[in-house]
Amino acid sequence: MDGLTVQDAALVGTDALGRLMPMYLWVTPNGLVRAVGPTLKKLCGAGPLIGTRFLDLFEVEKPRALLSMADVEAFSGQRILVTLKRGQGTTLRGQVQPLDGGQGWILNLSFGISVAEAVRDYRLTNADFAPTDLTVELLYLTEVKAAVMGELAALNRRLEAARAASEAQALTDALTGLGNRRALDAELIRACTLAARGEGQFALLHLDLDFFKAVNDTLGHAAGDLVLTEVAGVLREETRKSDTIARVGGDEFVILLRGETDPDRVERIGARIISELERPILYEGQPCRISGSIGVTLSRFYASPDPEMMHSDADEATYASKRNGRGRCTVWDGSSRPAEPEPGA
């Protein structure tokens, strides 16, 4: 004891009590409602309150053992949870304290986490809360949080849109640093246009890696990624700066060799690439063995080179390489297509 504690009972009128605790309930020793705070009264709605049995007004949720008013004393000071049997059936939390002189109990209630719904359901205002109550601050914070989250969500949407836009505009394959399909398409259209005008011929090589799936399946994706990076290195090594190399699929590459008109020369370049690819690549001490099938076509085979047609012919040559045992380079047979195809319409 600090010597200042007063043991006298404080006499407080019910109106004053209501201002201090707008959601209090005074229950008589025999379990009848004696007085109600103004906010709790609002929650109870119409109908008589004073003289009503406490247990007719509320369902006690916790502690479950509190079944009759005789048990109340045992739970004084503990947190109790009750549900209002009237109105919106709001669940409230509170604590019970016995009064001096056999006057019964005071139950002080408050909204739990469901305060926002209660404020809406009962149209509560600032005046329904004691000035010491932080409920209004809680509501304020709820709104502020919603506003800030809204700003963050908007920021995320803008960033996502920017990311998607930059990805769509990207011309580089992230893993190998080679061009991607977009980059290749643009280069090939340009090359075809120049070739059609007689301003520069080129060779188109399709390279499909052989046994790559086996590396991926046995040694994992990290090994696969390493192999792809090494392949990119080989292709850079075996081509010139003016050529275009692109990775257009998981294990598919396309090379555009500018100025090439000689099928034999291109076939030799293809064979050299394949022999380089066949050098085992070490991944964590394990050799990864792959090869490649190459199909080639030349712009000079066409009167008016068309990207789609050239891709299709290079593909056909690639399949021929695969059919003939993989690990080889096939030049598409230019004579199998009419030398001067009629342009459509």
Binding site: A116, V119, R123, L124, L139
Partner: peptide, 9 residues
């Protein structure tokens, strides 16, 4: 001014 947020009402 209502304490409850309008979109909840």
């Amino acid at each position: 001014f209502d304490l409850a947020r309008p979109e909840d009402a």
